[in-house]
Write a protein that binds this DNA or RNA. Structure first.
Lengths: 206, 206
DNA sequence: TACTGTGAAGAACTTCACAGCA
DNA sequence: TGCTGTGAAGTTCTTCACAGTA
C-alpha cells in the first residue's frame, strides 16, 4: 500500500469519532458533506483520505455508518487490545491512568514504573507502581505493545534506549525532548510547552 | 510578513530549546548543521525557517547562540509573561500546574475552575479552585491571555463559547473534540486518544 | 575557507471538477 | 438525481544547490 501521511491517519481517527457520534444518534448513513462539516474538514479531503484504503461508500447515498466505523477501526488497528506500560508515576502518568477514552479504545495499562521509592508499591487503579529498575526484566517476561514516557527529559533518552532494547515498537513521549530511535520504532510526541509557544506566537502575531 | 506555517513555528520552539542547551554548555556559536543534527531536522530547513524572519547568522561562522535565542524568544512572543487560567481541576489540570517548563517560560497560572463543589476551595499551588460559575465574571474583572480546557468533551463547546465571549484569544484544549471558534481565536488541541491511535495504526501497518 | 541566505526544483498535500454508479 | 471516487490542477512545504560574504 502507498505510504499514508500522518495527517491522513489523524483525520481517520477524527472521522471514527464522528461516526460513533452519528451511531449514537441512530443514523444509518451519512454523506461526506455532513461528516466534513462536523469534522471541520472538506468533503473532498474526507473522500480522498478514505480512497487510499478502498471504496466504502454508495454513490448517491453516502456511507453506511456502522460499516464505515468498523472499517476505520480495522484500518487504525483498533480491532484488538494493546498492553501499555506507563513509565513515570507523576501527574501526567496518573492523568493517563484515569483517562476514560484510553480503556474504552482497548489500550490497557498493565504496569506503572517510577524511580521514586516513595511511590513504589502504591496502587494505581489496581496496578502497583514498581521500581523502574525492574522495567527491563519485566518486559522480557511480559512484553508490552506501547510504552508511555512521562518522565523528566534528562532520563528520557536512556529509558527510550532501554525500551528499544526490550523490543518495544511504539512510544508515546511526554518528555520535552526529541528522542533518537530506530526506524522500526514509532514515537509520538506530546509537548505541552510547544503548544503553549504556538499560542504565544499567535497572540503576538495576530 | 508572509504567513508562517505552524510547522515552522513549532520548529522555532525546538530550535530555541536546543540553543538554550548549547548556552548551558557554554557554546558561543553554532552552525545550522550542528543544530539540525541535534534537532532531527535538516540544515536547509533550519536556515529557511529562520530566513522568514531575517538573517541572524554570520557566513563562515554560524549563529551567535545568545543572540539567536533572544531573537527566537522575541519572535515566539516569549519576551513577556502570560496569564493563564485552567478550567477543569482534574488530573490533567493538576499535571499542568506542576509542569516546570510552564512557569519557566512565563506562563503563569492565575486561576483554576471546576464545577465539582468537592474540589472548590482547595488550594492548588497557591491558587484556589473556584466554581466555574464565577469564570465569566472573574474574566471581566481580571482577564487572562490563555485558557486551558481540561474538562469533559460534553461541556467543552459551551465553555469555549463563554471564554470567547469574555474575550479570550488563545485556548489550549485537552478535550477530545474539535471546537468551533471565531478566526481571531487560536486553539491548540492536545488529544491523547489521537496520538495512541496513530501508534496503533503504525503497529498494525509496519 | 566555512558557512549562511535564498531562488528554483522537487515532493507532499489539498482542492477541484467531473465521470460514473446506485 | 445525488453523492462517491479519483485523476489533474493547484497550493504549500521541503530540499537542493550555489552565489555571496565574514
Amino acid at each position: 500500500m502507498r505510504k499514508i501521511s500522518e495527517s491522513t491517519v489523524r483525520r481517520l481517527s477524527v472521522y471514527l469519532r464522528l461516526l460513533e457520534e452519528f451511531e449514537r444518534l441512530g443514523r444509518a448513513t451519512v454523506s461526506s458533506d455532513e461528516m466534513a462539516q462536523r469534522g471541520h474538514t472538506t468533503p473532498a479531503q474526507l473522500r480522498k483520505d478514505l480512497s487510499f484504503f478502498g471504496s466504502f461508500g454508495k454513490r448517491g447515498l453516502g456511507y453506511d455508518v456502522a460499516e464505515l466505523s468498523d472499517r476505520l477501526r480495522e484500518i487504525l488497528g483498533l480491532g484488538r487490545t494493546y498492553r501499555v506500560t506507563v513509565v513515570g508515576a507523576g501527574k501526567i502518568g496518573s492523568a493517563l491512568v484515569q483517562y476514560r477514552e484510553f480503556g474504552e479504545r482497548g489500550f490497557h495499562i498493565v504496569s506503572v514504573y517510577d524511580n521514586d521509592e516513595a511511590k513504589v508499591g502504591r496502587s494505581w487503579d489496581r496496578v502497583d507502581v514498581r521500581h523502574v529498575r525492574h522495567l527491563e526484566s519485566d518486559l522480557r517476561v511480559d512484553p508490552v505493545d506501547i510504552a508511555v514516557l512521562a518522565i523528566p527529559p534528562q532520563v528520557a533518552q536512556q529509558t527510550m534506549d532501554l525500551l528499544v532494547g526490550a523490543g518495544v515498537k511504539a512510544v508515546l513521549n511526554f518528555a520535552p525532548v526529541r528522542l533518537s530511535h530506530p526506524d522500526d520504532v514509532t514515537v509520538q510526541n506530546v509537548n505541552m510547552a510547544l503548544e503553549l509557544e504556538t499560542l504565544s506566537y499567535a497572540l503576538r502575531n495576530g
